[in-house]
Nucleic acid binder design. Sequence first.
DNA 1: TCTGGGGTCCTAGGACCC
DNA 2: TCTGGGGTCCTAGGACCC
Length: 414
Amino acid sequence: MGNRIIMHIDVNSAYLSWEAVWRLQHGGEIDLREIPSVIGGHEESRHGIVLAKSIPAKKIGIQTGEVLWQARSKCPDLTVIHPNYELYMQCSEALMELLRRYSPLLERYSVDECFLDVTGSLGKRPPVDLALEISRRVREELGFTVNIGISYNKLLAKMASELEKPNKVHTIFPREIPEKLWPLPVKELFMVGRRTGPKLHRLNIFTIGQLAKADPRFLTEHFKSFGKMLWRYANGIDDSPVNPWGTVPKGIGNSLTTPYDVDNKREAFLFLLSLTETAASRLRRAGLMARVVSVSIRRKDLSFSSHQRRLFSPTNITEVLFKNIKTLFLEFWGKEPLRHFGVAFSELCNDQFYQVSVFDEERLSRKKALDLSIDGIRGRYGNTSLVRGSFINSGIPPLSGGIMEDYPAMRSQL
DNA sequence: TCTGGGGTCCTAGGACCC
DNA sequence: TCTGGGGTCCTAGGACCC
């Protein structure tokens, strides 16, 4: 029995690098990576946040998730590029394809991150050697740089890939934990986010090392099972395997920030319908049905609420799902202005094995057939080829959300 | 004039049953 | 004719990830 060798590969400033490479390849003179620049959404439709930033922009203090006008106030001549998700999907695909040549044990963690178990493909080569070769090939063949972290498990590999950016290869093997992992601020640890960091500080825990040496019972008292997990991560303990097969999604949803505040039922229903249409067709494409339907809203004041219900029987029929969405929405909306809508379907089950009750089988099968042919027409002739009458002249898109296409589920746990 | 959009997992508290 | 108690199911909310 030996240790496995796991790599975590992470594209540096992914959206921004991909955009930079594309522009250089299409006759652009400027490398976005070398100037203060960001990828940011459209401000006129209230999508104006920083999605990715160049290193010069980072040095000025611009942060991912920040609103664009704030970013501009830090840097008046900031270059802002709108996202091109189709391009990013293609770049991501190309990267994964290249990496799979080194090992079939590749787990896609997000659009720009993956884990690679190279235990079987290493031979006598030192892992760092192989990582440097992978890194060089990505740079030469695809034009962007990656960070690679190496260790015996996913958690340490991921922590190693964050040590120094960009275009670096680092290891955190168990013997290196005290030297490389423990001095880091505790907020750098995977799963320590903006709420947990300050909570740990109040308990006098400021570094990952202090967390590692804390009494796990003390952490359990304060954080329940989450505390135990934090303690394990701080000690570099993680035995989750690299999973190349992907997982069945637990829920499918779409959400949207509206270009303007919505305060009437008619428009609210149209936005909810357009979200339901996309989410429901993703459900059907995945061969799934949902037993739980949920609606969420964000108000003008940014407060957030959600409302959900278990259905009598699972379904993926747009009409049935939407009827429930409407009911749920009216049950908890108090007519206040809204800036964001979400629909989500969960407790999914396979549609092959589910038999509807004899009672409404015929009525439902007609609706099912209708959905199927609508999906077919939209698939062949484009999403705009078939539009519900209620959307015409409404100014509201008949389908919304699902911009990144269906994607292997991203998990917070490794 | 505020902060996108896609997920996962955990927990508290109420309803309900025995 | 009252306030015991355990288990399960359900929902809302909150934490985290990218």
